[in-house]
Design a protein around this nucleic acid. Sequence first.
RNA 1: GGCCCCGUCGUCUAACCCGGUCAGGACACAGGCCUUUCACGCCUGGAAUACGGGUUCAAAUCCCGUCGGGGUCACCA
Length: 521
Amino acid sequence: MLSLQSRAFRGTFVVQHFWSLFVENVRVRFAPSPTGFFHIGNAKTALYNWLIARHCGGTFILRLEDTDVERSKEEYAEVLFDCLTWLGLDWDEGPAFKHIPEKGDYGPYRQSQRMHLYRREAQRLLDEGKAYKCFCTKEELDAERERAAAEKRPPRYSGVCKKLTPDQIHAKGNAPYVIRFRVPDGVTVIDDIIQGTVRTENKEFDDFVIIKPNGDPIFHLAVVVDDGLMKITHVVRGDDHLTNTTRHVMLFEALGYQAPQFAHMPLVHDEKGQKYSKRMHGANVLDWRNDGYLPETLINYLALLGWTPEDGTELLTRDDLVKKFSLDRAGASASRFDLKKVQWLNGQHIRMLGVEDLRDRLIPRLQAAGLDTTAKSTEWLTRMTAICQEKIKTLNEIVTYTDFFFSEPAEYEEKAVRKHWMAPDALKCMDEALDAMEQVPEWTAAALRAAYETLVERTGNSLGHYVHPTRLALTGKSVGPGLFELAELLGKETSLARMRRAIEFIGRACAPLGTTPEGQS
RNA sequence: GGCCCCGUCGUCUAACCCGGUCAGGACACAGGCCUUUCACGCCUGGAAUACGGGUUCAAAUCCCGUCGGGGUCACCA
């Protein structure tokens, strides 16, 4: 049931089980930096980690990478909290937010509160000779890099400070220094669950900085110390970190931690196949919420971006995903976001919702559009929802589907007017329809339908001949919910009034072609 | 530029590990059906193994090269 074995072994049942014996409590983490922006790629990373944890009965850890104090603000953490909550990705361990206390035994879960740990571990590396102090100034290093670029050499740190003797170091006094990791000789191998085996010569890396002059850690150190101390078993993140991972593996070894399994998933690209830039609409998870997409949809779609369940089904609930998700079926190639498919998926998920649930999600959208829903009963709103559930693709679409319930149509759709009300017998048609309406014994969709069908039988016209002009009169539009259902909800009085108003409008503005030269006034 | 990753219909993907179906599905597109519009649903159709070699009776699948895309080489994360 655990499916976290390497891609190289995928499908081998024996290994799958063998592996599951070892990884009993899977611990995965999502470690964003709070920058005030929850990127769609962040969402995918969070989702995959969450799915793994929930699928395996493991632990999902939220950790804030806020070592860059200047860029990290508390309100940004709130955005993060909001987005994760909206998506329904709950965490088992993580930092305190406003109303939520810190959870977990491996805290603190903000890197800014773990500085002492990074410094302690860096000191240990220093003591063990696995790291050294470097006194080179930024200017010197920049110059060195420029020279390398000019000579078309890869930019590497020359390693001058590597050879400093204790006396020389002592002589530097209080000069500022960074701590560099001493990259060992040899080859580092990553057995990546998604990417397969990646082997890199250590000499491809120069001795990278792990502690800044002010004593703060560099990302690489912080991540490894955290993942090591927090006993992370699987690191699942974007493949932009693949190269970094070689550094991390070296650090894991140097620090004497058990290295986790790695899985580097492809990045999500925009519809043009480019990296999602922050400016682009849709890059921000909140864009999708604002546009009326369900979190269920986003979760489903994001999961499908680079993964398919064994049975090939694509419409999946949260529970389906948890049940079926496995990293060994995750692909390695980058994928682009397809708006059309998200829309389709959203329509499917809207249809799967309970009608009350959908109603409650719709009401805020109506209110946001300035429509007063408070005048309507809950029962009425439920019925309104029911007649639209099959139609809408996004929550926001409810506004154009139902605004006429809340206010008199401000105008009639021009194209529809030309098509239905300019005909020579438009007035006659509307009169007949109004008459039929007035005759219905009770104001129900069924009775209205029956009345129209009787009318059709009597006149020999098609049902559409009467339905379309009526719809235009009641809603001002040519598209919307089923006519009889909408009329029932609209009420007899309002419906009849709108019919009369339309007939008056036709008489005034829609004189049939040929009667007046211009055809309109 | 060095190193690393990726490359199947327009898009997401299945089949690749372990070579053998007319390369399957979904979205989108086109046509049709249903229908009071829209939507839903159903049917039909067009649509892909980046290129070039090699191995083999047989290659999307294994190997090499080319090209294309991406990542990474910070006192950012």
